[in-house]
Design a protein around this nucleic acid. Structure first.
Length: 565
RNA sequence: UGGGGUGUCGUCAAGCGGUAAGACACAGGCCUUUGGAGCCUGCAUUCGGAGGUUCGAAUCCUCCCGCCCCAGCCA
């Protein structure tokens, strides 16, 4: 029934591993790694990879390392290292003491480069970046050998040592692997493996002014850590021959195996790190943890649960086909999880005052409300009721269509967990014609009970007692982008942003008991959706709620209102 | 016009020569003190296309077509 953390899960990668385990290919071990570059926050696409790598490790009783792939100091920082760890832990995964940094391997990687030079398989190239590009050729034409390709081992060794020592300007020389400038695979055309870059590294400071490139550092880091299955995304498939080339040249004994899968694309959002950085730096959102962001931090702040995210990652599967997963599936997973666990409460977002004319002005009574109608073990709570209440303004219509089941002239409606009330009259603002107040009468024999005369009252609406209500700010979030596939659009992505992705509503009136809401507490506001007390802006007794996701709304569907309120 | 991938329902995705799983979405219906939840039903005679092999093909072969990735001293 539920897919949640299904241990039976399988996909083509697990099939490869099953096979490797049978043939003893990697000594019957399974060791994976999750290797983010700490230059941004993790997003739902990374979550897919986290679930895959850590999931496989636990399924096969292996290990999964967390490794910061920090070989380019530009943009990397400790803030990101910390956020990455927080997010993975929050998602529910653990790397024990296996937190590693490619930057810790810099000396080792340097020595590997020296070995490569000694064996005549690498050389210092003194072409400019521009010239290197020209010499590389094109997709259809082979490249040409660099004039520096045949420098002697001694000269290369000397030059490379002096690159490290800081004798040359940035860009003056690079170290290149000597492979094949005519290879149809451009990655193999003497790839650059070291560059001079005078940029302080957030961990190694100015210890190094030369840094290894991804292709060189990654496969060697995997080897150093004895990784068996190095799982990465499809765009690295072209790099696999290079991965294997380095590993075959430099590693004896066990060699890791790279396997590629299709990265996640999600509708109505964007998952490229570059785009997310632009959203943050361009102040289109409030930060990496803006609840509209597809980042783990954003989803957490929005109120998504780690269980729902893991369930989602399990349901989308793992394959090699480019995909665009419907965000409705993620929302389904969130509802599915929260529907089970979130206690119910009543909250009125757009208040309309209702006076119960035949109810004593000085009286208050408490009605018993189930915290979860299907789960008695979640208990009940008492909610105060009095003569004046707020109801949702769209739960009243002056001239309702036939199928409308809520309040209107001459109609009766059930107040959730309370009495049946009947419309008596309404008060309008003379200037605007707007309805400012409704008057009703209540049936004293119907308190949380069916009417004794057996009459049918179909509609049920939520309410909050005016005198007891707690006012709160509520933030209604909607999709960040207007179009399903903004990443696939040619247009400037900022023009595709949904201008209505955030609506702040105040004052909303919520049950008095919600004063006790703590940051990150989640509730279902009945008939509205799931809401989470904002982790940053909620103060004691003064909750601020984020709408996590609305409830499915078949009335809105009938009327074509797209489910937004 | 080079190389590497990939094409199964609107969207994901099983299928591994024996006659198209499942999920989301969608559409009906039941039920209901959340128009919620739940439950039931429907939803690919067909697997990018065309040929071929076979008693039998989404699965094997051939050709064609579409889409994605690669020409950073990014990862």
């Amino acid at each position: 029934m539920t897919h949640r953390d299904d241990p039976q899960q399988s996909d083509f990668i697990r099939e490869i591993i099953d096979n490797d385990l049978q043939t003893g290919k990697h000594g019957n071990r399974v060791a994976t790694r999750f290797p983010p570059e700490p230059n941004g926050y993790l997003h739902i696409g990374h979550a897919k990879s986290v679930c895959l790598n850590f999931g496989i490790a636990s399924q096969y009783k292996g290990t999964c390392n967390l490794r910061m792939d920090d070989t380019d100091p530009a943009g990397e920082s400790l803030e990101f290292v910390e956020s990455i760890q927080n997010d993975i832990r929050w998602l529910g995964f653990d790397w024990d003491d296996r937190l590693f940094f490619a930057s810790d391997y810099f000396e080792k990687i340097y020595q590997f480069a020296v070995t490569l030079i000694r064996s005549g398989k690498a050389y210092v190239c003194s072409l400019s970046a521009d010239e290197i590009r020209q010499y590389r050729g094109t997709l259809t034409e082979p490249g040409k050998n660099s004039p520096y390709r045949d420098r002697s081992v001694e000269e290369n060794l000397d030059l490379f040592a002096r690159m490290r020592a800081g004798e040359f300007a940035d860009g003056a020389h690079v170290l290149r692997a000597k492979i094949d400038m005519a290879s149809p695979n451009v990655t193999m055309r003497d790839p650059v493996i070291y560059r001079i870059k005078r940029s302080p590294h957030y961990r190694t400071g100015d210890d190094w002014i030369i840094y290894p490139m991804y292709d060189f550092a990654h496969c060697l880091s995997d080897s150093v850590e004895n990784i068996t299955h190095s799982i990465c995304t499809l765009e690295f498939e072209n790099n696999r021959p290079l991965y294997d080339w380095f590993v075959n040249e430099l590693i004896e004994g066990h060699r890791p195996q790279q396997i590629e899968f299709a990265r996640l694309n999600l509708s109505y959002t964007m998952l490229s790190k570059r785009r997310l950085i632009e959203l943050v730096e361009g102040h289109h959102v409030s930060g990496w943890d803006d609840p509209r962001m597809p980042t783990v931090a954003g989803m957490r702040r929005r109120g998504y649960t780690p269980e729902a995210i893991r369930d989602f990652c399990a349901r989308i599967g793992v394959a090699k086909k480019d995909n665009l997963v419907d965000i409705a599936l993620l929302e389904h997973c969130v509802r599915d999880d929260l529907g089970e666990r979130a206690p119910r409460a009543m909250a009125v977002l757009r208040p309309l005052r209702v006076v119960i004319d035949n109810y004593p002005d000085d009286k208050t009574e408490e009605v018993e409300c189930a915290n979860h109608p299907q789960k008695p073990d979640m208990g009940t709570r008492k909610v105060p009721f009095s003569r004046e209440i707020y109801i949702e303004s769209d739960d009243f219509m002056e001239d309702p269509p036939k199928k409308y089941k809520r309040l209107g002239p001459g109609r009766e409606v059930r107040l959730r967990n309370c009495y049946i009330i009947k419309f008596a009259s309404m008060v309008k603002d003379e200037a605007t014609g707007r309805i400012t107040e409704i008057h009703c009468t209540f049936d004293p024999e119907t308190k949380n009970a069916p009417p004794p005369d057996g009459r049918k009252v179909d509609g049920v609406i939520h309410w909050v007692s005016v005198r007891h209500a707690l006012s709160a700010q509520v933030r209604l979030y909607d999709r960040l982008f207007k179009t399903a596939d903004p990443a696939g659009s040619e247009d400037d992505f900022t023009s595709l942003l949904n201008p209505d992705s955030l609506e702040t509503v105040y004052p909303c009136y919520v049950e008095a008991g919600l004063a006790a809401a703590k940051p990150e507490d989640r509730y279902q506001f009945e008939r509205l959706g799931y809401f989470c007390a904002d982790m940053k802006d909620t103060a004691p007794g003064k909750p601020v709620f984020n709408r996590i996701v609305s409830l499915r709304d078949s009335w809105a569907k009938m009327t074509g209102e797209a489910g937004r309120k």
